Simulated assay, not measured.
Amino acid sequence: MKTIVSIVISLMLISCISNSTKSEPVSLSNSKDSMLIEEIQFFKNLGFPLSAEMELQSFPTKSRVYQEKRKFYDVSFSASNSSGMPIKQRSFYIDLELKEKFLPTLGGREKNFYFLEGKIKSILNAEPMYPIVEDGRAFDIALTGIGFRYNDGNLSEVACYYHFDPCDEKILLTSAGEIQKVIKEKKTCKKGCGNLIFFRAPGSYKIADNKVRVRKEPSVKSEIITELNKDTPIEVIADAEVYEEVFPHYGTWGKVRLDDGTEGYVYGAFLRAPAEPDVVAIREKAEVWKKKNGWKGK
Rank of each mutant, 00 (worst) to 15 (best):
75 V>K: 12
185 E>Y: 06
110 E>G: 15
116 L>G: 08
212 V>D: 08
102 F>I: 02
279 V>M: 05
120 I>N: 03
110 E>C: 13
203 G>Y: 02
60 P>R: 12
163 H>D: 03
14 I>F: 10
106 L>Y: 05
164 F>Y: 15
4 I>M: 10
197 I>E: 07
158 V>M: 10
223 E>F: 04
235 E>C: 00
42 F>R: 12
12 M>W: 04
147 G>M: 03
298 K>I: 02
106 L>Q: 14
111 K>F: 00
206 K>F: 01
172 L>H: 12
251 G>Q: 00
186 K>I: 05
236 V>Q: 08
163 H>E: 03
220 V>K: 14
146 I>Y: 08
203 G>R: 06
105 T>Q: 05
40 I>H: 13
246 V>Q: 09
259 D>K: 15
63 S>N: 11
175 S>P: 00
223 E>V: 06
242 V>C: 02
275 A>M: 08
5 V>L: 13
222 S>Y: 00
75 V>H: 08
106 L>A: 13
33 D>W: 14
207 I>C: 09
253 W>E: 00
13 L>E: 05
215 R>M: 03
277 P>D: 08
203 G>T: 05
142 A>Q: 11
89 Q>I: 01
174 T>S: 13
91 S>M: 04
112 N>E: 00
266 V>D: 11
148 F>M: 02
264 G>S: 07
266 V>Y: 07
274 P>C: 10
129 M>D: 05
21 T>A: 11
236 V>W: 07
213 R>K: 15
246 V>G: 01
85 M>S: 14
132 I>W: 01
6 S>V: 00
57 Q>C: 00
18 S>P: 06
256 V>H: 05
298 K>L: 01
141 I>E: 11
282 I>C: 10
97 E>D: 09
135 D>A: 07
42 F>G: 08
238 A>H: 04
157 E>S: 15
221 K>F: 03
155 L>N: 11
177 G>L: 02
17 I>A: 13
238 A>W: 00
109 R>E: 05
198 F>D: 06
77 F>R: 13
4 I>V: 12
101 K>F: 00
97 E>Y: 02
30 N>W: 06
200 R>L: 07
